[in-house]
Amino acid sequence: MKGFLYILECSDGSYYTGSTKELELRLAQHQAGEGANHTKKRLPVKLVYYEEFSRIDEAFYREKQVQGWSRKKKEALIGNRPEDLPLLSKNHTQYPKDFMISMKDEVPEPSVSEPSVPEPSVPEPSAPEPSVPEPSVPEPVEGTTNKIQNNLKELRYEKQ
């Protein structure tokens, strides 16, 4: 049984993404206020995009995929700009500047001035640290296991 993924534009400009077996019937339901709560409160709605699938589960999978997309990425899909989709998959802070300017919506330039970078400070030469002689640790007595002496010996070995 075939299925459809569809995107509606609501009266407030928001998008609603859904899937159905019968696209025309589902659109009529949305327009009559019998659809999802999102569209019910934002009538009238307009079909702006749809895809047809051979099975409803494929349409449902695609619906869930598209629902997770940003508004700009949905607009690239609606506007038939598949070449923009990979770029819009990135976090919005990773968009190339020239790409953002080429988008339909104007992106205002940030009004934040460049932060001043302080000059790197050069560390003042410091006096050499006084050498402190290492305490001598007596060797363990042969034939006995002295945990404290063994631990001190290990510490001294790790320091070297």
Rank of each mutant, 00 (worst) to 15 (best):
K2L: 10
K2P: 15
F4I: 01
F4W: 12
Y6C: 01
Y6F: 10
Y6P: 00
E9W: 00
S11K: 06
G13D: 06
Y15L: 15
Y16R: 15
T17H: 10
G18S: 10
S19A: 15
S19I: 02
S19K: 08
T20Y: 04
T20H: 04
K21W: 08
E22K: 12
E22P: 00
E22L: 09
L23A: 03
L23E: 02
L23N: 01
L25Y: 12
L27C: 02
Q29F: 09
A32R: 14
A32L: 12
E34F: 13
E34P: 06
E34V: 09
E34H: 15
G35V: 05
G35S: 06
G35P: 03
K40A: 09
K40R: 15
K41T: 11
V45D: 00
K46N: 07
L47H: 01
L47M: 06
V48K: 00
Y49S: 04
E52L: 10
F53S: 05
S54F: 12
S54M: 11
R55H: 15
I56G: 06
I56R: 13
D57I: 09
D57N: 14
A59E: 01
F60Y: 11
Y61N: 12
Y61W: 10
R62A: 06
E63M: 03
E63Y: 02
V66W: 00
Q67E: 12
G68L: 04
G68R: 09
R71P: 03
K72A: 15
K72F: 09
K72P: 03
K73W: 05
K74W: 01
E75N: 09
E75M: 09
L77D: 00
I78P: 02
I78E: 03
N80Q: 13
N80G: 08
N80D: 14
R81E: 08
R81H: 11
R81G: 01
R81N: 13
P82S: 08
E83R: 08
E83F: 04
E83N: 11
E83C: 05
P86R: 04
L88N: 00
S89V: 00
K90N: 06
N91K: 07
N91T: 02
H92M: 05
H92D: 08
H92N: 07
F99M: 14
M100W: 11
I101A: 15
M103Y: 13
D105W: 03
E106K: 14
V107R: 08
V107S: 07
P108M: 02
E109H: 06
S111F: 10
S111H: 10
S113M: 11
S116I: 15
P118Y: 05
P120G: 03
P120Y: 07
S121Y: 14
S121H: 10
P123F: 06
P123C: 04
E124M: 07
P125N: 04
P125H: 02
S126M: 08
S126I: 09
A127R: 08
A127F: 10
P128R: 05
P128H: 03
P128K: 06
E129D: 12
P130Y: 01
P135L: 03
S136V: 05
E139R: 08
P140W: 05
V141A: 14
E142Q: 13
T144I: 09
T145G: 00
N146T: 02
N146E: 06
I148R: 11
I148M: 06
Q149R: 08
L152I: 07
L152P: 00
L152V: 03
E154Y: 09
L155F: 08
L155R: 11
R156E: 11
Y157G: 13
E158H: 12
K159P: 01
Q160R: 15
